[in-house]
Simulated scan of single mutants.
Amino acid sequence: MRLDCDDRGPRDATVILLLHGFPLDRTMWTHQIGPLADSGRRVVVPDLRGFGRTGTPPCHQPGDAFVVDQMADDLWDTLDALGIGPARPVTLAGLSMGGYVALAAAVQRPERVAALILLNTRDGADDPAQAAQRLELAAAIETSGSTASLVESMPLRLLGATTQAQQPHLLDQVRAMMSAAPPLSVAATLRGLAARPDRTNWTPTWTKPARVIIGNEDVVSPPEVMHALADRLRLAPEDRVAIPQAGHLTPLEQPQAVTQALLAFLDRLDQPE
């Protein structure tokens, strides 16, 4: 499935994909797209299956699941359609659900991935209680045809305490983004996330460059979870970037710090060995 996306920057430049979290869309990267493209990179920012302008596939039925491997397949279809083929490995930057998709893509086609940037995410699967909670919520959303309860409560967990106190407008912005997601897509994605595989045994096999970005106030993927992921990737201290005064949505909460972390990593990748 080809994804609707922004495609900015020189056509022949190094490619970075920015993959959004759940249940958001590509506009969560609005502060990073311009600076990355202005730095001379080609920046591809898709709406993942079911979200934003990509929307729900026409064949989708209640009870279906959008699994992360399927979402990763969509990335390859989209890159091929953009003329970015196997000869041009890309950097994948994924936040939360986008991180799950980035990891799935790296497992599928490691030769097509030059580097990974994992923001506020996990390489482990849901435990049984978490998976059951997602499935229960998916069923409730399909039955009611509404995501209102999720939209009301979830941003309070996604945004850090400092953000909620100092940037309360971001609560409304995140709620608006979530409200735009079709209920069927939200339910299908919840089922897919509940079924995602554990990657913790695979992560230590990754030998290419990687960086993790950590929200110091994140309660969804707390710093200790991100440092454990960094340990499995054998990352040096400079590739464990802590973002102060930010929760789970670091690109929105502290956009300049996240942009700088992305650019610094890409600049290093561009240096000759």
Rank of each mutant, 00 (worst) to 15 (best):
R199I: 00
A181G: 03
A161C: 01
V212W: 11
S221P: 03
E224P: 00
S149K: 14
D172M: 03
R191F: 03
L190W: 06
T189D: 01
E217Q: 12
H227I: 14
L235G: 08
S185Q: 04
T189E: 02
E217C: 04
L235H: 12
R211F: 08
T200D: 10
P197Y: 13
V151Q: 05
P168G: 09
P223G: 11
R234F: 01
P222S: 06
N201G: 14
V151E: 12
M177Q: 10
E152F: 05
E217W: 04
A210H: 10
H169W: 01
R191A: 02
S153T: 13
L235P: 08
L159H: 09
E224T: 12
A194M: 13
E217D: 05
S146Q: 09
S144M: 10
P223H: 03
P168W: 01
E224M: 09
A230K: 08
V151H: 04
P209E: 04
V212R: 13
L184F: 00
M226L: 15
S221T: 15
R232H: 08
G215N: 08
L190P: 05
A187C: 08
D198V: 08
D231K: 06
R232Q: 15
S179V: 00
L156E: 10
M177S: 07
D231R: 09
S144R: 15
T207K: 15
A236S: 13
T200G: 10
G160Q: 06
T207L: 13
V174T: 11
A187M: 09
P182S: 02
L193V: 14
T205M: 06
A188Y: 05
L150R: 05
D218S: 07
D172K: 05
T205P: 06
A161Y: 02
P183F: 07
S146F: 02
P183H: 09
L235M: 05
V174I: 13
L156R: 13
A188H: 07
R232F: 01
P237K: 06
G145K: 10
L170V: 02
L235I: 04
R157Y: 08
M177R: 09
L159T: 00
L170H: 05
A210R: 06
R191N: 01
A180M: 05
I213D: 12
W202Q: 10
A230S: 07
A180C: 10
G192V: 02
H169K: 03
Q167D: 03
P209C: 11
M177A: 11
L150N: 03
R175V: 01
M177W: 11
T163A: 11
L170I: 02
P197S: 13
T207Q: 15
M154W: 15
R199G: 06
A176K: 10
V151T: 13
N201Y: 10
W206A: 01
L150Q: 07
R211W: 10
V186K: 04
A195N: 12
G145S: 13
L159K: 02
H169P: 00
T203A: 14
I213Y: 12
M177T: 09
G215H: 12
Q166E: 15
A187L: 07
